[in-house]
Amino acid sequence: MSDDLSPDEIAEFLVHLGRAARGEDGAAALTPAQWTALRFFARANRSSRTPSAFASFHATTRGTASQTVKSLETKGYLTRMRAKEDRRSVRFELTEAGQDMLARDPLRHLAQSIGRLDCAARDALARALPALAVDVAAARGAHAFGTCGDCRHFSARQSGGHCACVAAELTPDEIGKLCASYAAGEDQLLQLPEDQKDIP
């Protein structure tokens, strides 16, 4: 296969990989939307574990997102928690059954394949994919998601970090979590070649 794939061909490969990774027969226990929600609540930080944040992440309506979240709660994979700082706010946490279900995630084979890439290829993917997500979100006028450690609101501290957006201290394990208030830093944006920077 040629190394000179066009952007259209690369996009098709990404879509194909996503479909192939979740097309395993044993994944029928959950719908694709339910798998996405389960992964989201496993990876999101405290303030982002809400149906509205999941709706934004999944690019769907709040009503549809709420139905997906409710179905996982009914199955016993998510549990509803009241936020300590605002008892009117509801957050969701994975239950033990939800954690067990994630071990059967149909994406695990894709993750294992990525793990077998050499370090240079894996690092390139780790840099390129978040930048693509930010760029596509901007093109569609949507909100981008990313991790606290890559966010403009984040500053490192000896004990972990600090989020200027919500004025909260972050523990080390929270820094790699997905955040609904994410704002991409300069190193998370697509870098244009010098000959394209002046093109409107």
Rank of each mutant, 00 (worst) to 15 (best):
D4H: 13
P7W: 04
D8M: 08
I10P: 03
E12G: 07
V15Q: 11
A20E: 15
A21Q: 04
A21M: 09
R22D: 10
G23V: 08
E24R: 15
A29I: 10
A29P: 00
L30Y: 09
P32F: 04
P32V: 02
P32K: 12
T36Q: 15
T36D: 15
F40G: 05
F40D: 01
F41T: 00
A42W: 11
A44Y: 04
A44W: 03
N45M: 03
R46K: 11
R46C: 11
R46I: 03
S48N: 06
P51G: 04
A53W: 04
F54T: 07
A55H: 06
A55V: 10
F57K: 03
H58L: 13
H58S: 13
A59W: 13
A59E: 14
A59C: 07
T61H: 09
R62F: 10
T64S: 14
S71V: 01
L72K: 04
L72C: 00
G76T: 03
Y77Q: 06
T79F: 04
T79Q: 09
R88T: 14
R88H: 10
S89A: 15
V90M: 06
V90L: 12
T95G: 05
T95E: 05
E96L: 14
M101Y: 03
M101W: 05
L102P: 02
L102E: 05
R104I: 01
D105V: 10
D105T: 08
L107K: 05
R108T: 11
H109Y: 09
L110C: 06
A111I: 06
R116N: 08
C119P: 00
A121C: 07
L132V: 11
A133S: 14
V134C: 07
D135G: 03
V136G: 00
A137Y: 02
A139P: 00
G141F: 02
G141C: 05
F145Q: 02
G146Y: 10
G146S: 04
G149F: 06
G149R: 10
C151L: 05
H153N: 14
S155F: 02
Q158T: 14
G160L: 05
A164C: 00
G176H: 07
C179A: 14
A180V: 11
A183C: 10
A184E: 08
D187V: 02
Q188W: 01
Q188P: 01
Q191E: 15
L192P: 01
P193C: 03
D195I: 08
Q196F: 13
